[in-house]
Design a protein around this nucleic acid. Structure first.
Lengths: 213, 213
DNA sequence: ACACAACCTGACCAATCGGTCAAGAAAATT
DNA sequence: AATTTTCTTGACCGATTGGTCAGGTTGTGT
């Protein structure tokens, strides 16, 4: 059954440990920032001695860079619906759903990204200027096409994108504030459903995507 | 003319210096986070020797707490339009304008607030649970009233508020990303006007506040 | 003019942190 | 079984940082 050159037990556990460290690092970076996160805290969260972390990731910056890059990948693929959906309303609705699901499942990743950007993107500036810029330009063209074919009202595509990003990521980045305002309770399944519905309702109606009722 | 007990030269300069330090601290905290901000960096930004900072603010945490509290004050008063405006569309439009203006004029403050909340609000948790919760509940009642009187569609007031917060603050917190996607240029007057118009257009139309055309 | 309080600051210290290293343990290869 | 490679880890180090303090300067009230 296993035709691919089976990975040796070594490479297998190596990847497992790397994932373990990356997961612990994501959590600690999200909750303490780059400077506030110490290698010792990450090591404790991963259940490994500190020196072992430096065997897999030579420096703290290396580890951080990997965390941010992994988030960026997840982030990019959330908008595949833009190319596959049959119409604007479906595409944007699916995009909002996907981004909300990311905010729910990967809140720590979102926080790390937010902090990185807020601090001037010291380690991923090149990604912003190349990949993200190209990606954004591409989606703007798609939105322009929706406007030209009368599927949505003539709003500024750029600010529509920003609004979707801001609103969906808010539920991850400001999750603590939202939880506090929710009587200290995490959002329930129903709460998340209500949030998604409210956001899609306002935005889709707001851009005149009638096909969403 | 000066009837009020004139402040001595001492208290005058004292307040000036405190403001100078607070301003420098806000900038450094915003760009480096709490841990990343060093008292030396803040001192340099303020043009004062480090030991002098400790004369006015005993600890780094004291200084940070003051910065966050000051931001919170500005933030709260941005929604006065909720009580004074004649109708929902005017009120929400004015609130969006006010919050966008804050994002433009006080981006550093917004970033400090965002980081504080993302890290679990270690120093302002009590504000979230008291002042912010009461404030939010009050505004939700106002929005409910707008719904009951048919001024806007029956959307969830809470998520409408979150959307306004998220979208407007995005222009401060993610200003660097927006600038990068804007060919590396800061938003011009015209850009800010376009952004405000797009946001108000989508949200007001999205909640069925017809009186905004 | 004098005395007292408020303010300023260079030098210093203890604590913390990222990173190193040497000495071994475990696994793969021969 | 021997040998080489990969992995593990406690102990350690230099650099940085928040905070202190003693001694001096400036302003205020009498």
């Amino acid at each position: 059954m296993a035709h691919a050159p089976r990975p040796s037990k070594r490479t297998e556990t190596r990847q497992e440990i790397e994932r373990l460290i990356l997961s612990a690092a994501e959590k600690v970076f999200a909750n303490a920032g780059f400077k506030g996160a110490t290698m010792q805290l990450i090591a404790d969260a991963a259940g490994l001695p500190k020196a072992n972390l430096h065997y897999y990731f030579t420096t703290k910056e290396d580890l951080y860079r990997r965390v941010v890059q992994d988030i960026f990948e997840i982030w990019l693929h959330a908008a595949d619906s833009f190319d596959t959906a049959p119409d604007a309303a479906t595409a944007i609705g699916a995009y909002i759903d996907a981004k909300m699901e990311i905010s729910r499942r990967h809140p720590d990743g979102s926080k790390v990204w937010a902090t990185e950007v807020m601090h001037g993107a010291p380690v991923i500036q090149d990604y912003l200027e190349s990949t993200l810029r190209d990606w954004t330009d591409g989606r703007i063209k798609v939105i322009r096409n929706w406007i030209d074919t009368g599927q949505i009202a003539p709003i500024d595509p750029r600010h529509l994108l920003y609004m979707v990003w801001a609103t969906t990521q808010h539920y991850a980045d400001f999750g603590h504030q939202i939880e506090t305002l929710n009587a200290g309770q995490p959002l329930s399944d129903a709460d998340w459903h209500t949030a998604k519905a409210a956001i899609k309702s306002i935005i889709l109606r707001g851009i005149g995507a009638a096909g969403s009722a």
